[in-house]
Design a protein around this nucleic acid. Structure first.
Lengths: 200, 200
DNA sequence: CTCTTTTGAATAAACGTTCAATCAAACCCA
DNA sequence: TGGGTTTGATTGAACGTTTATTCAAAAGAG
């Protein structure tokens, strides 16, 4: 689901973003150097400075690019049943198979959140990105409520809660060794939805 | 609740840990330099190397010290009513007043979790620390179940879930500007506990 | 006098960033 | 059309800064 975003770069700027994305995904932010981006690009690191102000501006541009791409995709869910649709969205985040690029990138996003602690540009990005994903969850909830298949819950509050759990799970998964708790949390989340959102 | 941990250092090693803690709390990990630790200590940075292997070993020693301190405190809750006790534990993490040292330190812990992505020593620490806090939550739940005031829920699963929400909330709070969602999530967490844990 | 503690200066590596210098292509004008 | 000019892309080498870390020597305690 992640890949395919940068599959056909239209110009040098996009090629740089694509290379940055691959570097971030493969090596993480801590090991991201302009040299590595240059290697991935098979061009000189200094070329990057012709197109982007500096390293962090580049990384943020990459995040923004991805976010815009997702914004385009999020609206068009093909699944009709609201419950299936919501579950699909949760599974996307929970994705349990560890050895894939998507999970690697989610881990890197955490490193970038740590930058947001001190860097207002990163903060601004994640503020916006949280809003976007929360809205997409809330929209799915509203659809179900309007269709009469979900309870009359507060879609904004539930969406924020779901997102908080998902982000917490990703953080814990990326920063600890154990994984057993993940299924337990997934199960509890299911129970929460059953009591608060789904109708039985 | 945090302060008081390092209030009376017994020796140079502990003084160094205390200085490290204050630096982390006040400036965060990204801006932590041996120089700053030396300044806080009012001694030369090179002194630190006489007592600790290197910078990260020092930081981890500081985290371990704090964790041991908490392990000692967590058992002795003075509150008798299990529900009050649980709520107290949650409030401790949720602590909404932003301008305090405790919240600043929680934010720094996130930066350190980001290190855990690549550094096995940090990973080992957070694996252990998650276990400790989860166990203390699970213990509180079991107390309530055994006393018959909580439902027959799965204390481990609920504890893992609570911790995941709390960590997610801290991460979101530290890496974004908006804060409105926090109360919504707190409210939903309350509803979850009502449906799953508390008896009505 | 000896052992530990403490210091200041020096080391060394890593990186982001700058910049003057090429090169190719597009563009313009006669 | 064609020669000269402008523009943008690209490079390699160098700069400068930041920081963890080392170490030989001074200071201090017992």
């Amino acid at each position: 689901m992640t890949d395919g975003v940068f599959e056909d770069p239209a110009n040098t700027r996009e090629e740089i973003l694509a290379a940055t994305y691959r570097c971030l995904r493969n090596h993480g932010y801590a090991d991201l150097t302009m040299q590595k981006i240059g290697d991935e690009l098979e061009q000189s690191p200094s070329l990057v400075y012709h197109h982007y102000e500096n390293k962090d501006a580049l990384v943020i541009a990459c995040l923004e690019y991805l976010l815009e791409h997702f914004e385009g995709k999020l609206g068009r869910g093909r699944v009709d049943d609201p419950q299936d649709r919501l579950e699909e969205m949760l599974d996307w985040w929970f994705a349990t198979d560890v050895d894939n690029d998507w999970h690697a990138f989610l881990t890197t996003v955490l490193e970038l959140r740590a930058q947001a602690v001190h860097d207002p540009d990163y903060r601004a990005h994640f503020t916006r990105s949280d809003r976007v994903f929360k809205e997409s969850l809330a929209a799915a909830l509203r659809t179900g409520i309007d269709a009469g298949v979900f309870q009359e819950c507060d879609p904004d509050a539930v969406a924020e809660t779901l997102q908080t759990v998902l982000i917490g799970a990703i953080l814990r998964r990326s920063s600890t060794d154990a994984d057993v708790w993940l299924e337990e949390v997934h199960g509890e989340l299911e129970r929460y939805l059953e009591s608060r959102v789904y109708k039985n």
